[in-house]
Nucleic acid binder design. Sequence first.
DNA 1: CGCGGGTTTGATGATGCTCAAGCCCGGTGG
DNA 2: CCACCGGGCTTGAGCATCATCAAACCCGCG
Lengths: 199, 199
Amino acid sequence: MGIEAHIVDPKFTELFKHTFGLNEDEYQMMLSCFEVKLLNKKDLYIKPGVVSRHKAYVNKGCLRTYAIDEKGHERILFFPMEDWWVADIDSYYSGQSATNYIQAIEDCELLEISKENFLMLEDKIPKLKQWYALKMTRRATTTARRIEELKTMSPRERYINLLQKNPEIFQRIPLQYIASYLNIEPQSLSRMRKQLAKR
Amino acid sequence: MGIEAHIVDPKFTELFKHTFGLNEDEYQMMLSCFEVKLLNKKDLYIKPGVVSRHKAYVNKGCLRTYAIDEKGHERILFFPMEDWWVADIDSYYSGQSATNYIQAIEDCELLEISKENFLMLEDKIPKLKQWYALKMTRRATTTARRIEELKTMSPRERYINLLQKNPEIFQRIPLQYIASYLNIEPQSLSRMRKQLAKR
DNA sequence: CGCGGGTTTGATGATGCTCAAGCCCGGTGG
DNA sequence: CCACCGGGCTTGAGCATCATCAAACCCGCG
């Protein structure tokens, strides 16, 4: 079965056909640069040490990017989901050392592309380059703000803040992962939830 | 009595005669630019709103620079002492809004100079300009580090850290002020002290 | 001597971590 | 079909840290 079989989510084709204004031929050319990569829940897409020559567009599903801290504790950095890019290069953008893992939280469909092909595409489709660059700078600023929040806000404030700004993720992401993301113990998060629910 | 009567501390003359290499005539010229300003304990040198056309070299004594936060609480930013410069301009270098007070903690002897005279002196004595600039950049970096510490370290860690890095100030500065500087309640600081003394 | 500011002490409460146990629920094998 | 298992969430008990409100203490100075 061809690649199209998997691309049920309209985002990707939408993106290229409308946002970037490709005609059918160009679209096919572009598609041929990608390869579908399916991940089962808990599969690792990236593990530290292994150098990957690819990045991938998340077409479906949701993952977690995490690192292991000094004490061997997992620290979740973000939750890539539809319309994110995942790659080794995350370590570059996050300023973290290259010891990051990326693991599927749900069954995922990634559209993988080699660095060479991506460069080539960027070259042919200037809008793609801009769009990607914008995505990355946005991610960098959100990450910076998150680090700032971790320093300045109390656990409870961080939880309430996330609840207001990203309520969606509570629908998909297990609490234990959200706890790690907020740097709160799962038990404490559970208690905050209960306590704040009393209104 | 002339200005010399007050300049008992060798630092100031040392500074100009040796570090900046002035001869006697030049030294006298330089001296004539300054005016001694004596402060009694608790006197305010700077209060917010009042625009000052001067800055002052702290020849003797020690002061506190503080601001009032949203809740009307005093927050001490630093403790200018011998060989510091104090001025309105602190607000500029600290990045704080211009709502800072500077108050004498001990009786102080300041050597005050108008902005015009200082510019003139800087012009005549290039080394002075460099020296002053260096002082200010150092202050900026220490302040930045302090802000970072306030965010990342626990109250206890901040206390221990200060104890190691600036033990001198515990000899001159009342505990309540140190507490404010560390953003700790005086009672808590007192208890930490007691507890850590048990070793 | 007594006053007053600075420091200490006491009691209490909030927050969030840790260790431990319990609960709930979906999947699996018998 | 049901009993069991395991993972994820919740709950319980205890503890450390610090803030807050209050009171006591200490000491130099008028």
